[in-house]
Nucleic acid binder design. Structure first.
Lengths: 136, 136
DNA sequence: CGGAATCCAAAGGGATACTG
DNA sequence: CAGTATCCCTTTGGATTCCG
């Protein structure tokens, strides 16, 4: 049956990739960092704990769904901790764990590389686009 | 017209994010590195140029479409260069540019951080999952 | 050999409405 | 306030086919 075979092959490929990700720490870390809002949340929390609504305001453009999802993932990964104060209304604070703080210097390194080299990338892109545009 | 307004709002959000990405080098860099196959291609090319088919074999699990797309993007970003030898059949080699080579140490830094700390992340995940599972 | 073009399924993610 | 649940559009990416 062609359909089933194709689906199975797809599943195999997916698992091959997952297996790779599972054994490759760098890949796992990149997956975490590149989560659309994770690095933003991480740097937002760099200077102290914040409430959910404060985070939502600082990370302009994030939807409530994605903010919650991002924070959950980061909590699960041990990068942030979540503290509920059972007042009325409830108050929830997020703060970096030591592990999360440990990640900040790496983000800094990424930022530094980017600040130094991204204009070269920009220039390369423009040059590339000019080349392509001038080709019929 | 509700439909049009919703679509416009969505478009605005998208552009807000794009505007942010455009002004944030770190975010741009993370977008590049986290491209599912970019870091793999980068490290595959670390020790010298490779042909298209060689890359395809080294990066097991990548589809031809994604490999091509990744290489195009990296070429546009000035990270790799593409050389066509017009023989029959054609031969195409990819190699890192100086800019691309310059990125390798950063990948190394990411790899080192991951190797040192990802087991903490693993442990945090298991602890988190145990906590959640034991809650009805 | 090294692609480009097309098609389609699956995942991602925003909007909205509801809850403790 | 800080979420959860649902709906549904958009994007991603694999499979397949065709080309120089």
């Amino acid at each position: 049956m062609a359909t089933r075979t194709a689906a199975e092959r797809r599943e195999e490929e997916r698992q091959r990739y997952n297996a790779y990700v599972a054994t490759c720490p760098s890949r796992k870390l990149l997956d975490t960092l590149s989560d659309k809002w994770a690095s933003l949340a991480l740097t937002a929390l760099a200077h102290g704990p914040l409430r959910y609504s404060e985070l939502a305001r600082m990370i302009a453009g994030v939807s409530q769904k994605m903010l919650t999802q991002t924070l959950r993932t980061m909590e699960r990964d041990g990068l942030v901790s979540r503290t509920v104060t059972p007042s009325v209304p409830v108050r929830v604070d997020y703060r970096l764990t030591p592990l999360g703080e440990n990640l900040l210097p790496l983000l800094e390194a990424i930022k530094r590389w980017a600040e130094v080299h991204m204009e070269d990338v920009e220039a390369a892109r423009e040059a590339y686009d000019r080349r392509v545009d001038s080709q019929p």
